[in-house]
């Protein structure tokens, strides 16, 4: 497992966050954009240690919470739970193949969406009718899955980590 400095984690997650809230409006398709912050958290939890996963999940979650209208803390908790789960089962499922990366992106997005939906329902803050929510989740998960190999590749180049050798 790799070790990354706190500064590097902060830098990469904050940069990803800024791109997510400013640039992704230009690449959205039918109002749907991929979730780069989620993919960064997945990458770090698959390649780094638990402490780094927690730090990345917390920072990414705060950025996501601040820039969305959902209840504060919902993305932070979902990233934390997802990151810790992936970190714990790091080597069991993951293989460095495009299909596996896309599948991880897809499943993680669905998990995050259900978690955030549940958390916001507790706070009496819905996302409109369920069929609309379902529609968005499927499209969002697909788009995130499509870009996940690229994001994993770029992140691994920046951090100089290969997931296959991360363990």
């Amino acid at each position: 497992m790799h070790r990354i400095s706190n500064a590097t984690i902060m830098m990469i997650v904050i940069c990803a966050g800024f791109i997510q809230v400013t640039a992704f409006g230009y690449i959205e398709i039918a109002g749907i954009k991929p979730d780069i912050l989620l993919l960064i958290v997945i990458f770090i939890s698959l390649s780094c240690q638990k402490s780094e996963t927690i730090k990345a999940a917390l920072i990414a979650g705060i950025i996501k919470d601040v820039a969305s209208s959902s209840v504060f803390g919902s993305y932070m908790l979902s990233f934390l739970v997802l990151g810790l789960f992936l970190n714990y089962h790091q080597r069991k499922f993951y293989k460095e193949k495009i299909f596996t990366q896309a599948l991880f992106g897809f499943c993680s997005y669905i998990f995050m969406a259900i978690f955030v939906f549940g958390f916001n329902s507790i706070a009496h803050r819905g996302f409109g009718p369920f069929y609309i929510f379902f529609n968005i989740v499927v499209k969002g998960a697909l788009y995130t899955a499509v870009v996940s190999p690229l994001v994993f590749f770029v992140t691994s180049k920046i951090l100089r980590i290969r997931l296959a050798h991360a363990g």
């Binding site: 966050g17 997510q20 809230v21 400013t22 992704f24 409006g25 109002g31 749907i32 954009k33 979730d35 912050l37 950025i63 996501k64 820039a67 969305s68 209208s69 959902s70 993305y75 969406a113 955030v116 939906f117 996302f127 929510f133 968005i136 989740v137 499209k139 969002g140």
Partner: peptide, 9 residues
Amino acid sequence: ARDSSNFSD
């Protein structure tokens, strides 16, 4: 800034 998620606009 724009919304970071797809569930709200």
